[in-house]
Design a protein around this nucleic acid. Structure first.
Ligand SMILES: [Mn+2]
Ligand SMILES: [Mn+2]
Ligand SMILES: [Zn+2]
Ligand SMILES: [Zn+2]
Lengths: 136, 136
DNA sequence: CAGCAATCTGGACTTTGTCTAATATTCGGA
DNA sequence: TCCGAATATTAGACAAAGTCCAGATTGCTG
C-alpha cells in the first residue's frame, strides 16, 4: 500500500470524494508524510513547485476530508488546527516548546472511571493529550 | 471562603501578583463564576457597567495569571482559548454543538498504559477531553 | 512635590480562517 | 460530439483572536 497520487484517487473515491487535481495533491501531502499538518503547511507543501492551489481550496478541501472521515482534527495548539491522516483511535504527545506533535498508540492505553454522560448525549471522541516540556 | 473583590486582592498577592483594580476585576470575573471563560467573555463581563479595562490589559492579565499558576488554559475550541479558575487536576467535557464546557473530576478517572516519555522530557500536564454531541 | 517603575491604553498589526461572486471544470444525456 | 447543469476553484474582501508598541497613568518613595 503506497501513497502514490494514483492511489490517492482511489482513496478519495472510497470516501465518496470526487478526486480532483487539487484534492489529490492535498491528500498526497498528508498521507505520503503521515504527519500532523496545519492548513498553512499543507498550502506550502502543495504549492512548492508552482502555485496551483488557492487558500480557499486548501481550507475547503481539509474541511471536506474531515466531514468524510478521511482525516481527523487535532486541537492542541491555541493558534492553529492540525490535520491528522491517521484516523485510527490514538492519542497525542505534544512538545509545548517546539510544537512537535506525535502519536501515542491507543492499543495499551486505558481510560477508566469516567462518569456517565448526561442524558441525550453521545461521545464523539475522547482526546488525550500529553503535554511535555524539555527538562531545562 | 468567598470570592469578594477584597479576597481577590489577597489571592493575587499570594500568587505574587500585584493587585490592581483591573486585575482584581478580572480575577473576580473568573473566580466568582467558577466557569471557563474566553478572553472575550472576560472583557465583556468586566466592562458591563462602564468600560474600564482595555483589550490589551485583559490579554496581558490572563497571560500573567497563567504564568503565575492562578488559572489554567483549556484548548478545546479551535477558535478561542478558555481560561479556567479551577487549577486542581481535572478533565473536561465539551459539547461540540453548544460549545459548553464542564469539568470532570479527576478523582475517579484513571489513565493507564501510557508509554514512557522520551528522554529529557517532563510531563507538563495531561489533558483529557470528552467530546460529546446531542443525539439528533 | 518630583522621580521612577510598574501598569494600562488605543489602535495598528498579524494570523487563522470564512465568505462571496465570478470563473473554470466535469459529466451525463441528447 | 455538444450542451447545460452541477461541482469545484479562485482572488480577494472580510472577520475574529490575539500581539505589539509607544505614549499616558498610576502609585510609590524620597
Ligand atoms: Mn501539480
Ligand atoms: Mn469598577
Ligand atoms: Zn495523530
Ligand atoms: Zn475546568
Amino acid at each position: 500500500m503506497d501513497y502514490t497520487r494514483d492511489n490517492m484517487a482511489g482513496l478519495l473515491r472510497s470516501h465518496d470524494i470526487n478526486p480532483t487535481h487539487q484534492r489529490i495533491e492535498i491528500a498526497h501531502a498528508l498521507f505520503s508524510r503521515q504527519e500532523h499538518l496545519s492548513a498553512d503547511q499543507v498550502m506550502a507543501i502543495v504549492n512548492t513547485r508552482h502555485s496551483e492551489t488557492s487558500k480557499a481550496t486548501v481550507y475547503n478541501t481539509l474541511k471536506l476530508f474531515l466531514e468524510k472521515g478521511l482525516v481527523r482534527e487535532v486541537i492542541v495548539d491555541p493558534s492553529k488546527v492540525f490535520f491528522d491522516p491517521n484516523t485510527s483511535p490514538h492519542h497525542h504527545l505534544y512538545e509545548v516548546d517546539s510544537g512537535k506533535l506525535s502519536d501515542i498508540d491507543a492499543e495499551h492505553v486505558e481510560i477508566s472511571g469516567l462518569p456517565p454522560l448526561p442524558a441525550g448525549m453521545v461521545t464523539e471522541g475522547i482526546d488525550l493529550i500529553v503535554r511535555v516540556r524539555r527538562t531545562s
